Amino acid sequence: MSYPTAHTTTIENPRLRLLAKMKRGEYPLMTFMAIPSLRMAQIIALTGVDAIIIDCEHGNIGDDSMHNAVAAISALGVSPIIRIRGPAHDIIKRALDTGAHGIMVPQINNAEEARQIVQSSKFPPQGIRGQGSAFPAIGHGLTTPEYMISANETILTMIQIETRAGVDNVDAIAAVPGVDMVFIGPNDLAQSILGYVPARGDEPEFVTAVDKIIEAGRKHGKWVGRMVNNGAVAKEVRSRYDTVAITGDTKAIQNWYMAEFETARS
């Protein structure tokens, strides 16, 4: 079935900051949020970041905090993306019903898993997503009928490649219609193929895996992203990726305090 996607849509919604910048090739910047706090969401949203990935896989974030974070982030003109804890249909539905501008799905190993995610992410006839909430439209600044018309081609579906199986099958995964981005999770990828974390980054097998993921994304016209540890690395890899996520709230807080305490004690 051929249909418009985030890559080909002609719908322009200024609220969808991440999608708009991706389509213009502007290298938007993201970060992860793991601490369940509406105020934390607001603080991060006011830093100049383009999208905040609300981490419901590894973060301490339940349904209430997920809804509150999406509302706070979108109200400040930043794109809320939810990294869900798994690919189950009900989890995807619940995440999208917050009004998130996209989802990130971890540890996808093959094309069939990717197809199921796309099916759960889209309303009929392209998928099987159900409608019954007013909240999604609010997060997009739309009425419910407007949201229903636009959602299938404006919500970003991001697939994480971070296992050996995912790398082996990445060409088929990237070929799935409705997959908008392949996103590299470097720590889990290193653990899967090297047996340790973090990767130094120059291990031949790790480099080959990263290159294969990028190549598959480019071959099938999909955006490619990854997590990086700091702004210097984000700047260094800009020519290879369409977007990156620069660490997250917990690391940012720890890093600032440790640096300041070290200065104070020196």
Rank of each mutant, 00 (worst) to 15 (best):
M181V: 15
A100S: 04
D55H: 11
K212D: 11
G141S: 11
G217T: 10
G231Q: 10
I81R: 00
Y241N: 06
D242H: 15
N110K: 08
I128L: 10
T163Y: 06
Q131I: 14
R200A: 13
G178I: 03
P14S: 12
Y27V: 09
N187V: 10
H67K: 11
V237N: 05
K235N: 13
N255H: 11
N13P: 06
S133E: 07
V49R: 03
C56T: 14
E203C: 02
A190Y: 09
I155C: 08
G141V: 08
M104K: 04
F206E: 03
F135A: 15
M227Y: 12
I128W: 03
G102M: 07
P4T: 00
A252F: 15
G178T: 04
G132P: 07
A174W: 05
E26D: 15
D90W: 13
I73F: 05
A34R: 13
E205L: 13
P186K: 07
R238T: 05
I43W: 01
Y3N: 02
D188K: 08
A259N: 12
G185F: 12
K23F: 03
L38W: 07
I92E: 02
M40T: 14
S192N: 06
S74E: 09
A51E: 10
R200F: 08
K222W: 02
T10M: 09
A88E: 15
A175H: 03
A174P: 00
H140A: 13
T8Y: 11
I35W: 12
A41P: 05
K23L: 09
T8V: 09
V233G: 01
G99H: 00
I61S: 00
I35S: 11
P4Y: 09
A75F: 01
D90Y: 14
I149Q: 15
A252M: 15
G102D: 00
A199Q: 09
A20P: 00
S121P: 07
G25E: 02
G225E: 01
S65E: 15
P87A: 12
A199C: 04
A151W: 02
G62H: 09
G127A: 07
A20W: 00
A69Y: 04
S37L: 11
V170D: 00
V237T: 06
L76G: 01
G127D: 10
L46D: 14
